[in-house]
Design a protein around this nucleic acid. Structure first.
Lengths: 331, 331
DNA sequence: TCGGTTGCTGAGATCGGTTGCAATAACACT
DNA sequence: AGTGTTATTGCAACCGATCTCAGCAACCGA
């Protein structure tokens, strides 16, 4: 491929560089006859425009970064998947950036995205620390956050209603006859984790029961520790709400290792609605977040902000996903 | 940020554009005194070089694409994670590209990576169809494949020894006393899936037993179907080897729904060594692939190829990861 | 037939760097 | 002092597009 530049095509088509450029990026500005000829020639040569050169000159590209803390977490994986989709439906290419919780990295990604003239970026549930970083950069740059952002309304966000989700879980469990319902928290530091916990606390109190927080620790092993705590209790709850599906998995796994069966001995309900949950043992009953919608909406918000410079905060409705990890309490 | 270009810095530092350029990209070519001054000034202005402009001129960038069919599959997620890491240890930035099995998309990504002057790219277990695409592009472009590639030695690859892995699983099961061992295949179309299956068939025959392939179907539901098949057998095997962890999950889940317990009623062993497996119910015994190593090695191979234009085929050793899904056969 | 659009295309500067080449300075050696 | 390096830096072309400004031809109405 002897370096195909716009000039090569121009020469081959017998027109000027700028005409070729127009033929591609502003078709209506070129006589259709000419345009088709150019396009044909280009096609024949196997020519494509250099996104680099374009971005450099236009000062805007089509690559948009999705910044997530950990792609290994299926929630983010699913998010990434639908966002990839949503992105290229609209002609963008998603660039997945994984920070592994390192703020320095998100920092790096932000400046990189800036340097690459990304029209905007998407940040998924960031820890509160990251939020600081975010604020420094969000200024002057379009970012939409898939989470709630505290004390800064200038950033568009899309979240799912945590309170509603917890309520769904609670109601479901209550309707099965559970009265003592424990809770295991998720990855600390995210606002959503906080919100879910708060909702649990509040709603439980409201219904007159005593909240039982089995673990409010911070890392991925919350599930395991929650289960341990559970096993040591004299009068353990008959059901457990896990702050997210991964934690639910860990809880069930740990319980299982100690001979307890779900849902026969304890009911467990998750929060996320991961596809993976359907293949768990038992299939996980959970509060589903409309992940696909979140992806699409995130992009819409971003685009909208780019024209309107409007800042919306969308809150989506979760829904109950009944599978096999809950049942009536053991007598 | 009033557009920070190299000229701005040059002016501020009282030197020529080219000197600034050198200060950054070829430090030894500038008097250390000057260099430090420039760097200081740049720092003060908060200046960073435009990777776009650099790539355009140099005809080589530092972004390297990792092409995977489905990021939702934890195997790829883990791969992506370690590769991200490995990449930026070496100063590259990984750009994750998800094809969702659509060859048109890989096509697109390949031309994109070409256009972005990526120094090379990594392709993870592609289906055989994709391999066609690959061949068209690999020519003239550096690609390393994390899988085996049939009939084309010109592409560097890194794989794990499938035969060895299956042998590990078989030996483990045998040593526990199992004599009838079934098999459920993985995502059809990949060479590794094929290799594992072949290994199973061959090794089983070799040991004098009859292979029992529970499902050789192609999609993600192989596990579920495999379990169904298992349940309908008059004389089912006492253990099952799943072609990969996800399939193992599905098998166990399906078995569980029918009241069968693992490992008490049936032993199940997976292949991959996903972190997720540790949180499964029961924790999954599996054949571990050294995913992290694969990532690092893939990049090394790519770099090596870039200088040497040598083409290596690395085969890594799998190892047995004992957890809780296998035990002696039920009497 | 002439001034006034309108439509299409060419020129050339520009985006933000890189790099071969030339110029200058500094230093070594005979 | 004269000449030959060697170390530094400036100059200017170039990477592959975009875009404003002109130029030119065809078309319109008077």
């Amino acid at each position: 491929m002897p370096d195909l530049s716009i000039d090569v095509v121009a020469k081959a088509a017998g027109v000027h560089r700028s005409t070729v450029s127009r033929a591609f990026s502003r078709p209506e500005a070129v006589k259709s006859e000419t345009r088709e000829h150019i396009l044909r020639v280009a096609e024949g040569l196997g020519y494509t425009m250099s996104p680099l050169a374009q971005a450099l000159r236009r000062k805007t590209s089509t690559i948009i970064p999705l910044i997530v803390p950990d792609i290994t977490n299926p929630f983010f994986a699913e998010l990434a998947k639908t966002m990839t989709q949503a992105a290229d439906e609209r002609g963008y290419q998603l660039m997945l950036c994984v920070t592994n919780g390192d703020p320095a990295k998100s920092d790096g990604y932000f400046t990189a995205m800036q340097a690459m003239y990304a029209p905007f970026g998407i940040v998924a549930p960031s820890t509160k620390v990251d939020t600081e970083t975010l604020k420094r950069f969000a200024f002057g740059h379009k970012v939409v956050v898939i989470d709630r952002v505290e004390g800064d309304d200038s950033v568009p966000t899309v979240t799912v209603d945590s309170r509603k989700g917890i309520m769904l879980a609670l109601d479901h469990l209550h309707s099965l006859g559970h009265t003592s319902i424990g809770y295991v928290s998720g990855i600390a530091g995210t606002h959503t984790a906080q919100d879910r916990m708060d909702a649990y606390l509040e709603l439980t109190a409201q219904s007159g029961s005593t909240p039982v927080v089995l673990d409010s620790g911070s890392d991925l092993d919350a599930g395991t520790r929650g289960a341990e705590h559970f096993l040591q209790m004299d009068n353990p709850p008959t059901a457990i709400i896990a702050a997210n599906d991964m934690v639910a998995f860990a809880v069930i796994s740990a319980l299982g290792r100690s001979g307890l069966r779900v849902p026969d001995d304890v009911s467990v309900i998750g929060f996320d609605g991961l596809a993976l949950g359907a293949r768990f043992n038992p299939p996980l009953t959970t509060v589903r977040q409309p992940i696909a919608d979140m992806g699409h909406i995130a992009i819409e918000l971003a685009e909208k902000q780019n024209v309107d410079s409007s800042v919306d905060h969308i809150v989506l409705e979760p829904e109950l996903l009944l599978r096999g990890s809950t049942s009536g309490p053991r007598k």
